[in-house]
Structures are given as C-alpha cells and as structure tokens.
C-alpha cells in the first residue's frame, strides 16, 4: 500500500514557483466540519515546495493520517493555574470576583481552585492584596513534529477544554518557510486563534445548504478579522449552486474546485493524499498558491 510509506514534497513538474516567494502564513479553515480542510491542507503542502504544515486541529489532529510521518514530542504545553497560600490568604474574595470563568470560589475560610476552568490569565495573582497566589503549570497537551521538521502537530489531552493556548504555542513552530495551517472546524476560539495574524485564509466548503450556512459564518469571521480569503469548493458537483451564488454576491473568490470523484474518495479511504495518485493536481495546487500570492501582495 502506498499509504504506508512516508510522503515527502517533490519538485514540481512545471516551473511555476517564482524565485522570491514571500513567506506567508496560510490557514485552511471552514465553518462546517468534514468539508475537506485536511484534504486541502495536506495536498497543498505536498504540492508546493518549501512549505511547512501545522495541524492546529489539536482536538482531533488527522493530517498525519495522510503523511505517515514518525513523530517526536518537542514540547509539553502547560498553562499557569493559581495555587493559594492559605497562610497568607485573608479570604477577601478579590481573586474570585476577578475571575471571569469562575475558576476560583472564595469561601469565608478557604479559597477553592477549579483548574479545569482556568484560562491561565494570571489576573487573580495580580489582584491579590496579600501576595497569596503563586502559579503552577497544568499540562494541557503536547506538540509533536516530524523528523524533517516540516510538519508539526498539536495534541490536546483527552477531556481538555483549553485548545487555544496549545494552538498559540504550536504557531510558534511555524519556521521560516511559508506555513500552511490546518484549522479546527467551526468559528469559535480555537479557529480564531489559528486564523489570527495570518496572511490568507482558505475556506473549504461543500456546495450544499449546510456547507453554505457554515461558510457564511466563517466568511464573516475572517472579514471581521480583515484577513483576505478565498473559497475551495470540495465535492463540487453535488448539492446546489448556493455557494457560488453567495461567493458572487459577496465578492469572495472561488480559488479551486475539487470534483466529487470516486478516485479521490478511494485514495482518501486508504490514507493517501490524492496528489500522489493524481499528480496532475499538484499543478492545480501550485496555481492556487499563485492566486493566493497575488491576493496577499
């Protein structure tokens, strides 16, 4: 099976790469889950030389199911959580009043800490008048990388809710090359943390009413964040023309269409990126890269 061997970037068949490629941060996001973010991110990464890939979908990272890299742990990520010194604490309750997430309960004789709810902002220790709060690290997950260093993934601990601090830390491993980031689905904090401070956002959708509904939400988010965006329609040919109509009305460019094709689905089911079985698609991803470069310029 081809899928069991490691996949590496190859030199493109055509010379489409301009010599001075600007190093960009490109996210692959979508409102709806299961539209093909990972498919687009992985195939894009394999098609464009000198790029890195970050799997920021830390709750269920799956890019490596298609890359088959051996991974090594590079960092255990922790967030600071408060520790109360009951000797110094006068139970004034200022810490609990300050905490927006109710991670502290100030009782007349004791302050209780609920670490799972703590976002690690450190505010409680700042407002404590008695210097009774110190901080300790709570592990939320790990960062792993391939031996080539071109691929990094975050892996959130099971049952953990704080995805954003792990994603923020993971983004520090972007490196010098153009980086492609596979974002978590939806439009909540983990997605926004991924998209924040990037140069371009690819919005992957499917041409169905469900895809359109969630595309609109995601498009509004990136518009609000003033990040240039383009749409990839995956499974083109199913559903209806609603997505195209919406893109036309709002001026959102459609930068690629991936057809509803049995060969793509078969490669996917075997864990093989379809640019490996249909190499002509590498050129299409390179063209899309050129389109993105133009939009960012």
């Amino acid at each position: 099976m081809i899928g069991s061997s490691k996949l590496v970037q190859t030199t493109p068949a055509v010379d489409m790469i301009t010599t001075e490629t600007p190093n960009m941060k490109i996210t692959v996001a979508s409102g709806k889950g299961g539209t093909g973010k990972t498919t687009v991110a992985v195939n894009f990464f394999l098609s464009v030389p000198k790029t890195s890939l970050l799997d920021c979908d830390v709750e269920e990272p799956n890019s490596n199911l298609f890359l088959h890299n051996d991974l090594e742990k590079v960092k255990e990520v922790t967030i600071p959580v408060p520790v109360i010194d009951e000797q110094k604490c006068e139970h004034c309750g200022k810490c609990a009043d300050f905490c927006n997430y109710n991670a502290l309960a100030a009782l007349p004789q004791k302050v209780m800490v609920f670490s799972d709810l703590c976002h690690g902002c450190g505010g409680c220790s700042l407002v404590c008048p008695n210097d009774a709060i110190s901080e300790t690290g709570r592990n939320i997950g790990n960062i792993e990388r391939s031996f080539s260093g071109q691929f990094h993934t975050g892996l959130l601990n099971i049952g953990e809710a704080m995805a954003s601090p792990l994603i923020k830390e993971l983004k520090n491993y972007a490196g010098e090359n153009t980086v492609i980031m596979d974002a978590p689905p939806g439009t909540a904090c983990p997605m926004i943390t991924t998209v924040e401070d990037t140069d371009y956002c690819i919005l992957v959708t499917e041409p169905t009413p469900f895809g359109l509904n969630d595309l609109k939400l995601a498009a509004e988010v990136v518009r609000e964040m003033k990040i240039p965006a383009g749409v990839v329609i995956n499974r083109a040919g199913v559903g209806d023309g609603g997505v195209e109509e919406y893109c036309q009305q709002t001026g959102l460019p459609i930068i690629m269409e991936i057809p509803y094709d049995r060969r793509i689905a078969e490669a996917y089911s075997e864990g093989i990126p379809f640019v490996e079985t249909m190499p002509q698609w590498k050129d299409k991803f390179l063209q899309m890269f050129e389109t993105i470069k133009e939009a960012v310029r």
């Binding site: 997430y101 109710n102 309960a105 009782l107 209780m112 709810l117």
Partner: peptide, 19 residues
C-alpha cells in the same frame, strides 16, 4: 449572579450561598 454565567455557574452560585 451566576444564572447567566458563561461557565462555572454552579461554583459561583455555591459561593453566593456560602456568602
């Protein structure tokens, strides 16, 4: 005060009852 908290409502409500 916890009835519309974004999270940890039970914790805050319990703190009020103690207060």
């Amino acid at each position: 005060p916890a009835s519309s908290a974004t999270g940890g409502a039970g914790i805050q409500a319990a703190q009020e009852v103690a207060k």
